[in-house]
Amino acid sequence: MSKKKKIGLLPFAAGFAAALVFGWNIFPQILYSNKGQPTTFSHTGHLNHTQKDLQDLDCVDCHYYRADGSFAGTPSLESCAECHNEPLTGVPSEQTFVSEYVKKDKQVPWNTYQGQPDNVYFSHIAHDTYECTECHQDMENADSLPPYYENKLTGYSRDIMKMHECERCHARENTSNACYLCHK
């Protein structure tokens, strides 16, 4: 009797395992496409220059608040061209960056990992007391950019901050969770 029961359970266990493999491994590969970034970028290379004559940068040199309190986010081509008007190093990726974007005066179409939909408002300066890495990946010691996964159905980034994550932190911090706090 018990043996029969065990055999009877086997197809269910196999089906369960197959569903898990599909749900956790195969389906995300179908849903998300790895788009990457238009050009390479090394955060460590900019924070600690290997060449002595170049000045080391700080995070806020590129990711800064504007005068009106809004956050600059990914630097514009003008910010990059302040230093990279001409190639500074012998790195081939820098030379292609200068020839492809700076010389052609074309903005780099960076993919934003945390790009929110049109109807969402987020103020960086209101969250200034928190560490950047509570929401963003720590890029201080990263030599390359992480892969950018785009949801094929919605077109949004896989690593976007979800609404329940915003709400959970707001509830924990005893802050308002009113709709108009974040929606526009």
């Binding site: 608040y65 005068a67 009106d68 309190g69 809004s70 408002y121 103020s123 300066i125 209101a126 200034d128 526009k184």
Partner: peptide
Amino acid sequence: HRWQIAKEEARK
């Protein structure tokens, strides 16, 4: 949205 912008400016 103008209130949200005004709050950001005040914080800055």
